[in-house]
C-alpha cells in the first residue's frame, strides 16, 4: 500500500508539470510544488521517504522540462562531498563502525550524512526544476500577491537570476587559473582545496563588483518604491486548478504514506541533530 502510494504520488505530481506547447503551468502551482517539497524534505527524517521524494522529482525531470538540471546537479555534487565529510566527522551518535585514531565513524553519523546528502539533492533538484519552469519575472507576481516585502523577494529573485551568471564566472575563473599553469583541476584532494581557494576569492570579488552594479541599477530604476504594481496578470486556467489539486493531493499522499511507514515517528525530530550541529552542541543519543 505504502509503496503504491509512494509510486503514484510522484507520477501524479509529474503529470501536472508536463509542458504543453501552448502554455505553461501557472507560476503559483509551481511555487506550491516547491513549498511542499521543501516542507516534506524538512520533516522526513528517514532515507526511504526522502528517496521516493527524490524519485518524484526525477520523474518530473524526465516528463517535463528542466534546462538547468545539469548545472544545479554539478553544483550539488560538489557540495555533497563536504556535507558527507563534515557530518561523518562531527556527528558521533550510535554504534561505532570504524575508528581511525581520534576519528570515529559511527552508524548514526553515516545515516545522518546520507540523509542530509539526500536532502541537499532533493532541494537542489527541486530548485533546478523550479527555476527551469518559472520565469523569475513571474515570481514577482507571486510574491506581490503574497505581500512579501519588496526587498526580500528582490534578493531572492536576483539570487536565482544571477545563479547562471555566477556559474559562468566560476567556470571562467577556473580557466583563468589554468592558463597560468595552476592545476585547479588536479585530481589530488589536497591540491583541489589549495587551488580552489583563490578561485573562490576571485569569484567573490567579481560577485561584489556585480552586486554593486546591480544595486546601482535598482536604485536608478526606482526600486524599492513601496508602491510597486505589476503591469501583467496571469489568469488561472482549468488546467492550473487541476494541477494545483494534483500537487497538493500528491504531497498529502506522500506525507500519509510516510506516516504509515514510520508510524508517525521521527518526524520533526530529524531537525534536532542539524540544529545541534549548527549551534555547536552535542547530541548525547
Amino acid at each position: 500500500m505504502m509503496l503504491l502510494l509512494l509510486i503514484l504520488t510522484p507520477l501524479l505530481i509529474a503529470i501536472s508539470f508536463v509542458h504543453t506547447s501552448t502554455r505553461k503551468l501557472h507560476p503559483f502551482a509551481v511555487f506550491i510544488w516547491l513549498i511542499i517539497i521543501i516542507f516534506e524534505t524538512l520533516i522526513f527524517s528517514t532515507p526511504l521517504p526522502l528517496f521516493f521524494l527524490l524519485l518524484s522529482i526525477v520523474i518530473v525531470k524526465l516528463l517535463a522540462r528542466a534546462e538547468q538540471w545539469n548545472m544545479y546537479m554539478r553544483f550539488s555534487l560538489y557540495m555533497l562531498f563536504f556535507i558527507i565529510l563534515f557530518n561523518i566527522l562531527l556527528v558521533h551518535t550510535g554504534k561505532v563502525l570504524w575508528e581511525f585514531g581520534p576519528i570515529s565513524v559511527t552508524y548514526g553519523s553515516v545515516e545522518f550524512a546520507y540523509t542530509m546528502a539526500l536532502r541537499l539533492l532533493i532541494l537542489m533538484a527541486a530548485f533546478a526544476i523550479f527555476s527551469s519552469h518559472l520565469d523569475t519575472d513571474n515570481m514577482f507576481l507571486i510574491f506581490e500577491k503574497l505581500h512579501v516585502p519588496e526587498k526580500t523577494y528582490m534578493t531572492f529573485i536576483i539570487a536565482i537570476r544571477f545563479f547562471e551568471v555566477l556559474s559562468e564566472d566560476a567556470r571562467e575563473s577556473m580557466l583563468a587559473f589554468r592558463v597560468r599553469g595552476i592545476p585547479v583541476t588536479d585530481s589530488s584532494l589536497k591540491n583541489k582545496i589549495k587551488y580552489r581557494y583563490p578561485v573562490m576569492v576571485t569569484l567573490l570579488k567579481n560577485s561584489m563588483d556585480r552586486a554593486m552594479d546591480i544595486a546601482e541599477t535598482l536604485e536608478v530604476r526606482g526600486f524599492p518604491s513601496g508602491h510597486r504594481k505589476a503591469w501583467r496578470t496571469m489568469q488561472f486556467a482549468i488546467f492550473d486548478y487541476l494541477a494545483i489539486g494534483a500537487i497538493i493531493a500528491g504531497g498529502a499522499l506522500c506525507l500519509m504514506s510516510t506516516f504509515i511507514y514510520a508510524n508517525g515517528m521521527e518526524i520533526s525530530a530529524s531537525l534536532l541533530p542539524a540544529l545541534l550541529i549548527i549551534s555547536g552542541g552535542k547530541n548525547d543519543d
Binding site: 523569475t136 519575472d137 541599477t217 518604491s225 508602491h227 510597486r228
Partner: peptide
Amino acid sequence: NQILMQRVENELAFPLENEG
C-alpha cells in the same frame, strides 16, 4: 549587470511598475 528581468517587455515595464 543592468538587466534584471527575464523578458524584454518586463524589463522595460520595471521602472514604471515601481512608480505604480
